[in-house]
Design a protein around this nucleic acid. Structure first.
Lengths: 217, 217
DNA sequence: CGCAATCTTGAATCATTTCAACATAAGTGG
DNA sequence: CCACTTATGTTGAAATGATTCAAGATTGCG
């Protein structure tokens, strides 16, 4: 295992690349994304301190997506072999890793719903609420106020919207008094209304844990 | 383990439900989906013979999504406990199950890209190509010709489009000579053009396997 | 201070949805 | 085998929602 520091907006992993390491984020914010031939980008997930991103590399030779930092990041790079051995030797660890992947998958499903079926305003609201919860988990938010970890352009790539329309959707949320923001600070003013607008149900982030096991990894 | 038969358009699992069993599809076609409060539906994946759908139930108490049949289906229902024990006792099995979940996740990522960033015509083309490959895998297609397992309305719910626009996108593909179809029969006439239109790269379906292991489950 | 990135705005265009109607196919019972 | 019914597919026209482009305002950084 080796610690490695990345600057803001650096690509940690590139689509199609052969991977030898899994990456655990020690500090900062990163995202996983895929791109189209014309360069359009779809962000699949955001990741923060404590997230094991790229866990799939343990079993898959090539990465089907890229990973990029949205801030300076400290990353612990763990050899795939080591992760595999862990899973091989300790069934409890195999289960924890599997569970982590299952949670990932649940988040992807929710995002597909978000991008596929929700209105622009709802999509943006949903993303904000997910970020609020994720940051709360790691003690960087009280669940209402937080520092936006990404730009509106990146938010747009996560929402499947243009940057301009993402901006306008954000304004709608502000005008309706659901959020307030200045600079990078974002504050959810009316949580019930936000959840209603977003159709947000936190369960997908915190699935009732492994049978007979604590849910937390 | 118990075999169970379902009619067409029956819900096998419902969102929020407590689950005791994992489901393996023995025959037929099913889909996983999530719904919005207003009833709009987003299909997350299609499943065919041999697919372990609902594998997540092994570790998660509640289901975050629903599963529905698109044809009469025979399903093998396996107790979650049994699946867990398998993983617990045999590291190879733990690895296989984990790998299956990782492939699932890769497909979800591709779908999010599809729905979030591709044009209507490309989305539909991409879905058709995925279905063609999946059916080829189980010997129900030569990769070009197959029986559409779902209606256009369901295709629309997978593409994140309205049924009407899905129909028109399909017509565009026909007019441009990329596919031909009559009744439920669908034929890809110009595979290179289809792949180009869809931005289709089969790798996400067949990730290079577990290190030192055959990829197939 | 000045540059570069990010955010915001307006107006024109384009893609997609909606609605409502009709056409076709598939399945059911007489 | 036909008439009936229902599900699915197709069409056109109007309305909506989102994108694009190009410009200006603001912020953060060196």
């Amino acid at each position: 295992m080796k610690l490695q520091d990345y600057e803001m907006y650096r690509q940690i992993v590139s689509e199609g690349e052969l991977t030898n390491h899994c990456a655990l984020i020690v500090s900062g914010c990163a995202s996983r994304f895929k791109t189209l031939a014309n360069g359009e980008r779809q962000i699949n997930s955001f990741h923060f301190r404590g997230d094991m991103v790229d866990l799939q590399s343990a079993l898959m030779l090539k990465s089907d997506h890229s990973i990029r930092t949205h801030s300076p990041c400290r990353v612990a790079r763990i050899e795939c072999r080591a992760v595999l051995q862990l899973a091989q030797q300790f069934p409890e660890w195999a289960r924890v890793l599997w569970f982590d992947t299952l949670v990932d998958a649940a988040i992807f499903r929710e995002w597909t719903l978000n991008v596929g079926r929700r209105s622009a305003v709802s999509r943006v609201a949903h993303l904000l609420l997910e970020i609020a919860h994720r940051l709360q988990d790691i003690g960087e938010s009280d669940g209402y106020e937080f520092q936006m970890p990404v730009t509106q352009t990146d938010l747009a790539d996560a929402a499947g919207l243009s940057a301009v329309h993402t901006n306008r959707s954000l304004q709608t949320l502000r005008q309706r008094g659901l959020v307030r923001s200045f600079g990078r600070t974002m504050i959810v003013l009316d949580m019930p209304a936000m959840c209603a607008e977003a159709g947000f149900d936190r369960n997908y982030l915190y699935p009732a844990g492994p049978r007979g096991l604590p849910a937390a990894v």
